[in-house]
Design a protein around this nucleic acid. Structure first.
Length: 580
DNA sequence: GCCGTTTTCGGCCCGACTGTTTTCAGTCG
């Protein structure tokens, strides 16, 4: 049982207490204790042994004994009791944006609604609008929320897709009926959301593969149509497996990877040279053409190799035919981590621990960017604490070989409603670099939001614009903003824009990132890490960067430390404008 | 439930937004 597992139970208790109409302050005490468990870095086993117990602010006598119970039994009797007394549908209803515990409780008590379906009926029968505290607008928003939930159900983000994909890959490789196996489809070329996974399997016996799949625990509803097998992953997500003989393996993998527009475009130069590229393989004069690798196919087309990430059917085929294919960014090109939270704000690890981890991953520098004071919900730093943090960073640097690794002082500075920043220029000037982000007032008009962000970019001390749309994939649309305008402003002021690696964010999205690159704006691939595990998200950011044709040269944190600091200096003074 | 006392009860993190109200409650970050 880790501190995180304990926190999960405490969060659940907070939720259920709210649904049961318990005192707000009592339920939020559980939430506070949960956060304290997550951020304190407490060693649970040691705390259980020590007579002092959980000496953490926010954890008093009652919670300490409850935490003991959780650690010993894996759950809390209070939670089990609450859960038993709560219709599970209420938890689903709670997922609707704009509905919190109080409103869900009111809907449940006054309308007897306890499922999403029941709520949808009640809305359609106009029964919600008549409840006290509700009206026509909130009813309409609830319906919107239900639609939103429906739309995102059965869909998953890139981290989940990757976990399922890699798990299934190893399971499929283990089957006696398979020779070679590869991930295909959108997971191979990178995407923001998924509703299915696609694999290509080499085997001469599709029926045997189908039989073997029954042994894979998370798969169900397996059905085969010739060489194509479909099924369900964990009862929710679609699976497609294309079984192919050895000769067609690379051609089929290629066909199952690219978008349909792309497949059409690449088929044209092949056809010009006498090759017929089909779903089931590559042919010439009706005879199969065996490929040694996917690269062979591009050679036959007279094109440079197109990396899977680019196979969307935009202009990549034309450029490959022109031989205009750059070397795209690789994970190993990344040298620095530029957007990282520590326990000083809402991160879960101390700076020293982060340094050790990041060095271990082979990076050369680290910009600590905790939240600024307006982000009090995230324990943002005020001027005094920022200074104290700077002293800690100085001390850590003293213990490091500067030629090998350096910790930089930064901040993720809130962009205030009017586009000014959360710290004065004098304070920002003391830092090595600044990430500026919007965390409030998401509902400004597009015009005002754009103006606000452009104004922040005009501040000389801003280095990088953080998560530029505020979207949370499959959860929340971003705020209304004219990204082309923002990108133009970044270009004019010599700033960088981040591509946030969090699977929920992935913004600047790859389409706009490509536009930014054309405008000469360097992209920073940023982990926005709050835990050590978050650094693993870098792979998603690199993948999305590659979709945007990002190269090492145009990646801010692929620069050496000196190169990065040089960029910061320029961004504070000189204006750089590169044409489109 | 926690905390800090003017020591046993009253306040509890802040501010914007929204939709409901007619001065505010609920939600969210």
């Amino acid at each position: 049982m880790t501190a995180r597992d304990v926190a999960k139970v405490l969060y659940d208790i907070e939720t259920y207490l709210g649904l049961h109409g318990e005192n707000d302050f009592k339920s939020s005490a559980y939430g506070r204790a949960a956060r304290a468990m997550e951020t304190s870095g407490i060693d649970i086993a040691a705390a259980m042994e020590s007579p002092g117990g959980f000496a953490i602010p926010g954890v008093g006598k009652a919670l300490a004994s409850e935490i003991r119970e959780i650690v010993e039994s894996g759950t809390s009797s209070q939670l089990e009791e609450l859960r038993g007394a709560t219709p599970p549908g209420l938890i689903d209803i709670l997922k609707i944006r704009g509905l919190g515990a109080k409103k869900v409780r009111a809907i449940h008590l006054q309308l007897g609604v306890d499922t999403l379906r029941g709520l949808e009926e009640a809305v359609r029968e106009n029964r919600v609008a008549s409840l006290p505290g509700f009206g026509a607008k909130s009813q309409a928003k609830i319906l919107e929320g239900i639609e939103e939930l429906k739309k995102s159900s059965g869909k998953f983000r890139i981290n989940t897709a990757t976990e399922y994909g890699e798990h299934l890959l190893s399971e499929l490789e283990r089957l006696s009926s398979t020779v070679r196996v590869a991930i295909a489809g959108r997971l191979r070329r990178g995407a923001e959301e998924f509703d299915s996974l696609s694999f290509v399997v080499e085997s001469d016996d599709p029926a045997a593969v189908e039989r073997d799949l029954a042994g894979i625990e998370i798969l169900g509803e397996i059905a085969r149509d010739g060489r194509t097998i479909r099924g369900l992953i964990d009862g929710s997500y679609s699976l497609r497996i294309d079984v192919t003989p050895a000769a067609h393996y690379h051609a089929v993998l290629h066909q199952r990877t690219g978008a349909s527009d792309y497949a059409f475009m690449i088929s044209i130069p092949l056809a010009d040279r006498g090759y017929d590229l089909r779903e089931d393989g590559l042919f010439r004069d009706g005879e199969p053409v065996a490929l040694e690798s996917e690269d062979d196919l591009f050679r036959l087309a007279g094109a440079a190799v197109i990396p899977p990430e680019l196979r969307e059917g935009i202009d990549e085929v034309r450029r490959a035919l022109d031989g205009d294919m750059p070397r795209l960014l690789e994970p190993d090109d990344i040298q620095g981590m530029l957007h990282v939270h520590s326990t000083w704000s809402d991160g879960r690890s101390g700076i020293a621990e982060i340094v050790e981890h990041v060095r271990g991953l082979g990076y050369r520098y680290l910009l600590i960017t905790d939240h600024s004071k307006s982000a009090f919900y995230a324990n943002g730093l005020d001027e005094r604490r920022l200074e104290a943090q700077g002293r800690e960073i100085d001390a850590i640097n003293e213990g490091l070989d500067p030629a090998e690794f350096r910790v930089l002082k930064g901040i993720e500075c809130d962009i205030l409603g009017d586009g000014t920043l959360d710290f004065s220029d004098d304070v920002l000037a003391t830092l090595d670099a600044v990430v500026a982000s919007v965390h409030s007032q998401f509902t400004l008009s597009g015009e005002a939001q754009t103006e606000r962000i452009c104004r922040a970019l005009a501040n000389p001390y801003v280095t990088i614009l953080g998560h530029s749309t505020g979207r949370l994939i499959l959860k929340r649309k971003g705020y209304d903003v004219d990204l082309k305008h923002v990108i133009q402003a970044a270009a004019e002021h010599g700033k960088s824009i981040e591509l946030n690696c969090n699977p929920y964010r992935l913004d600047l999205n790859w389409r706009m990132a490509r536009y930014a690159l054309r405008k000469g704006v360097p992209i920073a691939i940023n982990p926005d890490a709050h835990t050590l595990a978050d650094f693993a998200n870098m792979r998603y950011g690199v993948m999305m960067g590659r979709k945007a044709w990002l190269t090492r040269e145009r990646t801010l944190n692929a620069l050496s430390l000196d190169g990065f600091l040089e960029f910061v200096r320029k961004s504070r003074g000189e204006k750089i404008v590169e044409g489109a």
